[in-house]
């Protein structure tokens, strides 16, 4: 008992602890694979981040070396230029609009498709699922022409709205089973209490669907954040560039200054990585959950 009092976290299973240290072949192989895998992922990214602290002459002298001396100028120049922040702001704006539209409209549609009985319900659902098969790539050329007709080229909305449209299928496919699984008893009880169907949706179903809503938001946000093709077609004015597009164009513009490109690349990673650490469970859970239906 005194053991428990002193070390509650460890004491329940001392025998297991010891066993864990006797590594089987499989576990050893697993550790080797794990370390190799982590290395393959981390080293390239780390290389870019560290090389951003070198100068281009240093880089030309030898591709792989520690900075000598460490130079902050590359990072400082980018952070003090307007471009980086403007790209960041544009990306944020587009991603927020796209996510907001996809989730609000997607949740409404998923509610109708899961909680109402009507004739063409499955037909509508199938229509949306067809969209799952076609990532934005296939439709971009005609989409570009259409946006030009609508005079939406070089407008952030011109990218955000189609991105929302292309995020709708995933959103609906994830939300519908989730909403469907919420017991009908809850809805009956709400009806008995005099709540209309829409009140039930707003006051009860949506709050209960919060985990799924977070998941679809994260998916829509990341998709928009990383998008390259549509912004590439739609934006000609640098002032509208989103981060991926800005990064690619920065490379074209400063092709001689390798160090600057590397610094710009590593700075572009930071928002995505921060967001990922924050939303990790949702992204992973959402993707695997989405796939399992």
């Amino acid at each position: 008992m005194s053991d428990v009092a002193f070390a509650p976290a460890i004491s329940p299973r001392p025998p297991q602890r010891r066993r864990r240290w006797r590594l089987s072949v499989g576990t050893t192989a697993a550790y080797v694979a794990a370390i190799a895998l982590a290395g393959v992922v981390i080293l390239p990214t780390l290389f870019v981040v560290i090389s951003g602290f070198r100068t281009t002459p240093q880089l030309n002298e030898s591709a792989v070396a520690l900075p000598d001396p460490w130079v902050l100028d590359n990072y400082r120049n980018i952070l003090s230029s307007d471009d980086f922040w403007r790209f960041l702001g544009n990306s944020l704006f587009v991603a927020l609009i796209a996510t907001g539209m996809a989730v609000v409209f997607g949740a409404m549609a998923a509610f109708a498709l899961s909680r109402y009985e009507f004739r063409f319900r499955e037909g509508f659902y199938t229509l949306f699922t067809v969209g799952l098969l076609f990532p934005i790539g296939v439709a971009t050329l005609p989409l570009y022409l259409m946006l030009r007709e609508l005079d939406m080229l070089d407008s952030l909305w011109g990218v955000a709205i189609p991105e929302a449209a292309f995020s709708l299928p995933v959103t609906i496919v994830i939300l519908r089973p989730f909403m469907r699984a919420i017991p009908t008893e809850l809805e009956d009880a709400a009806t008995v209490d005099g709540a209309s169907k829409l009140t039930f949706f707003w006051r009860i179903l949506l709050p209960l669907s919060a985990p799924a809503l977070v998941t679809v938001s994260v998916l829509a946000f990341v998709t928009s954040w990383n998008a390259y093709l549509l912004p590439f077609l739609v934006f000609t004015d640098v002032n509208n560039y989103t981060l991926p597009l800005g990064l690619a164009s920065f490379r074209g513009q400063y092709s001689e200054d390798t160090a600057a490109i590397l610094a710009f690349t590593s700075l572009s990673m930071i928002p995505a990585l921060l967001f990922f650490v924050f939303a990790q469970r949702r992204i992973v859970g959402g993707l695997t959950g989405a796939v399992k239906g």
Binding site: L37, A38, V41, I42, P44, T45, F47, V48, S51, A63, V64, V222, W225, N226, Y228, L243, P244, L245, L247, A248, R251, T258, I261, L262, T265, S268, M269, A272, L273, F275, F276, V277, Q280, I283, V284
Partner: peptide, 27 residues
């Protein structure tokens, strides 16, 4: 967490990382 990092990075970032690595006589 680590294994998933590349999936979260945009293709643009991935492309630039590897462009740097794969330069002739590069990393």
């Amino acid at each position: 967490l680590i294994v998933f990092i590349p999936y979260v990075l945009s293709e643009a970032v991935t492309a630039l990382v590897w462009l740097a690595l794969l330069q002739p006589n590069g990393a």
